[in-house]
């Protein structure tokens, strides 16, 4: 016993090293789980208030750009509302009565206070949290397209797992043909994302639009992901190798809208009853 203790004492540096590294490895693995780690990230109130202050200062330099984009979006939306009104007026459509369907999605606008695009696993911090109704698993979109999912929330802040994260997969489809696939980033170019699992019989064109499929109830259906940039079909492959140019320029992300899906719980519990526990 004495020997053992003196052995451990002699190599105490090495054992401490092992212990600390094991702890770190455990944390890394824990952090890779979707919806994990509540406190030790940028949604932590101290960390968030520091980067929020820094972002407030930095924001002054991009205000002109942001205003410009918001104004453009406003104009676009106004045009759409007007067109819709015209259409309703002419067709004399019956309005949808079911309030639950009309209010299926709520949108909560939030400001981006922290964002990276160069890592393999990128995260975005926003200034809305539990107090504003955010929960892990919600979708985040911007005026240009898909942004990511909520990973963890604190009272006033939330961390999103960016679409530019090699672990993030979003169910999508090709708008023209309606075929389903999954978009996932390969970690290299922040402007390009891969579309996977489109079978080889599908005929694709460069320029096809890729949108969310709405199969997962996280994202509303038809949110823009990007435009097909490059299609390759290897001799033996089952699926196309598709590169999609992202609609959202993640380097310029300033505001996002978090989508609160009011019927998600109903859909999930119904599916749970019939299909069973999801994988």
């Amino acid at each position: 016993m004495q020997r053992l203790f003196s052995f451990i004492y002699e190599y105490r540096a090495f054992f401490t090293f092992l212990l600390l590294e094991l702890l770190c490895v455990w944390m890394v693995i824990e952090n890779n789980q979707y919806q994990s780690t509540k406190y030790f990230n940028t949604s932590n109130s101290v960390a968030a208030s520091i980067i929020s202050t820094s972002q407030n200062i930095r924001e002054y330099f991009s205000l002109r750009d942001i205003n410009q984009r918001l104004a453009e979006e406003n104009a676009e939306l106004r045009k759409k509302v007007d067109q819709r009104n015209q259409m309703l007026y002419q067709l004399d459509l019956r309005p949808i009565k079911d309030v639950a369907i009309i209010n299926r999605f709520d949108f909560i606008a939030a400001k981006v206070i922290n964002n990276t695009t160069n890592n393999y696993k990128n995260f975005i911090t926003i200034d809305k949290g539990k107090r504003h109704g955010l929960q892990p698993g919600m979708a985040a979109i911007s005026e240009a397209g898909v942004v990511g999912k909520v990973k963890s929330v604190s009272d006033h802040y939330a961390v999103l797992i960016s679409l530019l994260n090699i672990d993030n997969q979003v169910s999508s489809k090709i708008k023209r043909t309606g075929h389903f696939g999954t978009v996932q980033w390969d970690g290299v170019d922040p402007r390009v994302i891969d579309l996977k699992y489109i079978p080889r019989h599908v005929e694709l064109k460069v320029g096809d639009t890729v949108v969310t499929s709405g199969y997962n109830a996280v994202f509303p259906e038809g949110i823009l992901v990007g435009v097909v940039k490059n299609v390759k079909l290897n001799e033996e492959a089952q699926f196309h190798t598709i590169k999609v140019g992202l609609a959202q320029d993640f380097g310029k992300l300033a505001f996002v809208e978090v989508v609160k899906s009011n019927l998600k719980q109903e859909k999930d519990s119904l599916e749970l009853k019939t299909i069973g526990e999801p994988k």
């Binding site: 090293f17 590294e21 770190c24 944390m27 890394v28 780690t37 940028t42 696993k121 911090t125 961390v159």
Partner: peptide, 16 residues
């Protein structure tokens, strides 16, 4: 790590 949202990663490499 807290600020990089990468719990454990920088701690791991810096301990090494």
């Amino acid at each position: 790590d807290i600020f990089y949202d990468s719990l454990g990663l920088h701690a791991l490499s810096l301990v090494l």
